[in-house]
Design a protein around this nucleic acid. Structure first.
Lengths: 139, 139
DNA sequence: CACTTGACTTAGACAATGTCTATTGTAGGG
DNA sequence: CCCTACAATAGACATTGTCTAAGTCAAGTG
């Protein structure tokens, strides 16, 4: 059921009700919740969970590499549980909807050495921006 | 001297001391200041300029398309005056240094129709992440 | 060159997001 | 079944950004 939860268990992560709920709420495809959205959903299952715990737990999952932080809009960071399948994001500029996408090609190969300024590059994030079908309809 | 200022003048933008200072402070290559950094620099030239004016002015320049908003780290937004030369960004994960880069290839062509979910895509942002030479030295 | 007007600026309150601390609670090993 | 180290909590605090009401000014008009 919960792939994310399974992965965390497998790492000997100390399990608590709070951590379980956060992992369950965050699991799935095309899931990109803010910390407060995670908190809001967690509260419905575990009313006494605190905001600080949600922030801490999300931060730990990011450190463990089981969840990705995505900053698509300069507002709140979003959390993406799909950390083991490399992917990029497609964002609707009107409603903020986010889809995971899998472009072909290697963007890193497109950056010549003369444009690397001596950096050691470790990863590339691509954000496609546009308008989703349902927003386009509601023009 | 100030390309940005010239462009804004040419659009009939009502000129004030505050707007001039903001435009001057922001001009240049590889410039990616936060709003508060812009404010800090503006204050040295015009001590009574307010934070709200800096935010307003930056927002207007973005709306006019003369300045780009860049969200590289989920913290404060950064402002890039180099709006008329399409480019991407290379970010140091340790010190936050940002360079403008110009990859070859068209990232949009790498996204097949089946991965577009019916979106109308208008632009693509690419962020290369790594470690800059000076941080690599200070390992 | 003074007048007028609408746009601009200001200070500070407010809002949203995130971090930290001191205290209390508890998971899991012995 | 207890310890003990790690986790959770409430709430203060910090950072970044937005809004409002009142004052100020750029620039067109006569």
């Amino acid at each position: 059921m919960s792939d994310l939860l399974e992965r965390l268990r497998g790492r000997g992560w100390r399990m608590t009700a709070q951590r379980r709920v956060v992992a369950e709420v965050l699991d799935g495809d095309h899931v990109h919740l803010t910390a407060d959205e995670v908190h809001a959903r967690a509260v419905t299952r575990l009313p006494e969970i605190s905001r600080a715990t949600v922030y801490n737990t999300l931060g730990e999952m990011v450190t463990l590499g089981e969840v990705l932080e995505v900053a698509t809009d300069g507002r709140a960071k979003r959390y993406d549980p799909n950390a083991h399948r490399p992917h990029q994001h497609l964002v609707c500029g009107r409603c903020g909807a986010i889809r995971d996408v899998h472009p072909g090609g290697d963007p890193l190969a497109d950056l010549p050495d003369t444009e690397r300024f001596g950096f050691t590059i470790s990863n590339v994030e691509v954000t496609y921006r546009g308008i989703c079908p349902s927003c386009a309809g509601t023009a």
